[in-house]
Simulated assay, not measured.
Amino acid sequence: MSVDGMIKAMERWIGTGEPNAVQEWYRQRNGADYAYNFPWCNATITRAAVEAGEYESVCFGTDYAYTVAHAARFNAAGQWTAMNNGIAKSGIRRGDIVFFDWGGSSEIGKIDHVGIVTSVSGGYVYTIEGNTANVCARRVRTVREIAGFGRPKYKPAAPTAGSSSGSKRPQVSLSKLIQAAKIDPPKKGTPVSYAGVKTVEQALVAEKLLSAGYADGHWGTATLSAYSLYQQRLGFHGTQPGGDADGRPGRTTLTKLGKAHGFTVTS
Results as ranks from 00 to 15, higher is better:
Met1Ser: 15
Ser2Arg: 01
Ser2Cys: 11
Asp4His: 04
Gly5Arg: 10
Gly5Trp: 12
Glu11Asn: 14
Gly15Ala: 14
Glu18Phe: 03
Gln23Ala: 10
Gln23Met: 15
Arg27His: 05
Arg29Asp: 07
Asn30Lys: 09
Ala32Tyr: 09
Ala32Trp: 10
Ala32Glu: 14
Asp33Pro: 03
Asp33Arg: 14
Tyr34Lys: 11
Tyr36Ala: 01
Pro39Cys: 02
Ala43Asp: 01
Thr44Phe: 00
Thr46Glu: 05
Thr46Cys: 14
Arg47Ser: 09
Glu51Ile: 12
Glu54Tyr: 07
Cys59Met: 11
Cys59Lys: 09
Val68Ile: 04
Ala69Gly: 06
Ala69Arg: 14
Ala72His: 02
Ala72Asn: 12
Asn75Leu: 10
Ala77Pro: 11
Ala77Arg: 11
Gly78Trp: 13
Trp80Val: 04
Asn85Glu: 14
Ile87Asn: 04
Ile87Gly: 13
Ile92Gly: 08
Arg93Ala: 15
Phe99Leu: 10
Asp101Asn: 08
Asp101His: 04
Trp102Gln: 05
Gly104Cys: 00
Ser106Asp: 15
Glu107Val: 08
Ile116Arg: 12
Ile116Val: 15
Ser119Lys: 15
Val120Ala: 05
Thr127Leu: 05
Thr127Lys: 05
Gly130Phe: 07
Cys136Gly: 07
Ala137Met: 15
Arg139Met: 02
Arg141Glu: 12
Arg141Val: 02
Val143Leu: 08
Phe149Gly: 01
Pro152Phe: 09
Lys153Trp: 08
Ala157His: 08
Ala157Lys: 13
Ala161His: 06
Ser163Val: 04
Ser164Gln: 13
Arg169Gly: 02
Arg169Ser: 04
Ser173Gln: 06
Leu174Ile: 06
Ser175Ala: 14
Ser175Val: 00
Ser175Phe: 10
Lys176Gly: 12
Lys182Cys: 04
Ile183Val: 12
Asp184Ala: 13
Pro185Asp: 14
Lys188Leu: 13
Thr190Gly: 06
Pro191Asp: 04
Tyr194Met: 10
Ala195Thr: 13
Ala195Ser: 15
Lys198Asn: 03
Glu201Val: 01
Glu201Cys: 11
Gln202Phe: 05
Glu207Gln: 15
Leu209Phe: 08
Ser211Lys: 13
Gly213Tyr: 02
Gly213Ser: 13
Trp219Tyr: 09
Gly220Ala: 09
Leu224Trp: 01
Ser228Thr: 06
Ser228Gln: 06
Gln231His: 03
Gln232Asn: 01
Gly238Thr: 08
Gln240Ile: 07
Gly243Tyr: 13
Asp244Val: 04
Gly247Arg: 12
Arg248Ala: 13
Arg248His: 03
Arg251Ala: 10
Thr252Asn: 03
Thr252Cys: 06
Lys256Gly: 02
Lys256Asn: 02
Leu257Asp: 02
Gly258Arg: 13
Gly258His: 05
His261Ser: 00
Gly262Gln: 01
Thr266Tyr: 05
